[in-house]
Amino acid sequence: MVRARRPSAQTLAVLNALADEPATWRYGYELGRQVGLAAGSLYPILIRLCDRGLLEATWEETPVQGRPPRHLYRLTGTGVRWAAEVAEEPLAAPVRPRLREA
């Protein structure tokens, strides 16, 4: 289920990166480097997107010799549509500080 609240800037960065090539499987490490997120921020986002049915995840079928298999991620059809919807939503107006009267 998708929330009505606008996703965070970090989630939007991940969605946009995945939406650039929605049919391509991507490694978490690669995504993190692309969007500038550390693993502690990136993987909870990926897990939430998977839990909501917006991302699908699978294990690497043929890992590099000497390296354990890695998770791969890509947007589902619903995820592609949702990424397009949130990309079109206007950003909230910035909050302007109130000036104090002297």
Rank of each mutant, 00 (worst) to 15 (best):
A9R: 05
E88Q: 06
G79P: 01
P22I: 00
E85P: 12
V2D: 11
D20E: 15
E60L: 14
A87K: 15
E30F: 08
V14Q: 01
R70S: 13
R26T: 04
P97Y: 05
P7E: 00
A93D: 06
L54D: 09
Y73W: 00
E60I: 13
H71T: 04
H71E: 05
P7Q: 02
E85T: 12
I45R: 04
L49N: 07
G53P: 00
E89I: 06
M1Q: 08
E89T: 13
A84V: 10
M1A: 11
G28W: 03
A17P: 13
E30V: 11
L55E: 04
T58Y: 04
D51N: 13
P69L: 07
E30W: 07
D20S: 10
G40R: 04
D51W: 01
P69N: 13
V86R: 05
R3Y: 08
E61G: 08
I47W: 05
S8I: 08
L42K: 07
P44Y: 04
E88A: 14
Q34T: 09
L46M: 01
R98Q: 09
R96V: 01
A92D: 11
L75W: 00
A92V: 11
E61C: 08
E89L: 09
A83F: 10
E85K: 05
I45S: 06
W25Y: 08
A102E: 02
A84E: 15
G32Q: 05
Y27V: 15
P90Y: 09
R81S: 12
A39F: 04
E85S: 13
A93T: 01
L91G: 02
E61M: 02
Y43P: 02
L99D: 05
L31A: 12
A93K: 03
L12G: 09
E60S: 14
E30L: 13
V86G: 04
A83E: 09
R6N: 07
R6V: 00
A23M: 08
E101P: 01
E61V: 10
W25Q: 01
S41Q: 14
L18P: 14
R26W: 00
R48C: 03
V86M: 06
E89K: 10
V95S: 05
T24N: 08
L31C: 15
A23F: 02
E56T: 07
V80K: 06
L15R: 04
A87G: 15
P94N: 09
L31D: 05
L75V: 03
L31E: 14
T11F: 13
L42N: 13
T78K: 10
R100D: 10
N16I: 02
E56G: 13
E89Y: 02
E21Y: 01
A4R: 06
L72G: 10
E21V: 02
E89Q: 09
Q34L: 15
R98W: 09
G53L: 08
G32P: 09
A102G: 07
T58P: 05
E56C: 11
E88S: 03
Y43H: 06
P7D: 03
A57L: 03
E21D: 14
Q10C: 15
G32M: 06
R33I: 08
E61Q: 07
E101W: 00
T11K: 12
P68N: 15
L31H: 09
A4I: 01
E21L: 10
L12E: 15
D51K: 12
G32D: 03
P63A: 11
V95P: 04
W82A: 07
G66I: 14
S41H: 15
L72N: 00
A93F: 03
